[in-house]
């Protein structure tokens, strides 16, 4: 026998993730209607919520939580590149705008 382990199906987890995603989506929309929030705070909050939701889908629905560390790194490390690129390019664009 190969000692195989049929994956454990956790429907409760799936439904909890669904409720969390739905709640976070409603929260995202809600905070856009709050008056007086600074653009920076709003942007940071929304991007944080979006990245958190994206991570949740990847971790639970795409089963990264059951994969090996190497596969997790294979997926996660490449995303450092767009993140660095985004920071540099947006900072540059905003800096140029300030020069006008």
């Amino acid at each position: 026998m190969s000692g195989s382990a049929v994956p454990h199906v956790n429907r409760k987890e799936y439904l909890l993730v669904f409720v969390a995603l739905a709640f976070l989506t409603a929260l995202e929309i809600g905070i856009t209607y709050i008056p007086g929030v600074s653009k920076f705070a709003l942007g940071t909050g929304l991007v944080g919520l979006a990245v958190g939701k994206a991570w949740t889908v990847g971790w639970f629905f795409m089963h990264l939580n059951h994969e090996t560390k190497v596969l997790k790194l294979t997926v996660a490390l490449p995303f450092l590149m767009p993140a660095i690129y985004a920071f540099v390019l947006i900072a540059d664009a905003v800096f140029r705008l300030a020069l006008l």
Binding site: P82, Y85, A86, L89, I90, A93, V94, R96, L97
Partner: peptide, 9 residues
Amino acid sequence: LAYAVLRGG
């Protein structure tokens, strides 16, 4: 990224 740079600038 292109969107962010265009909008940021």
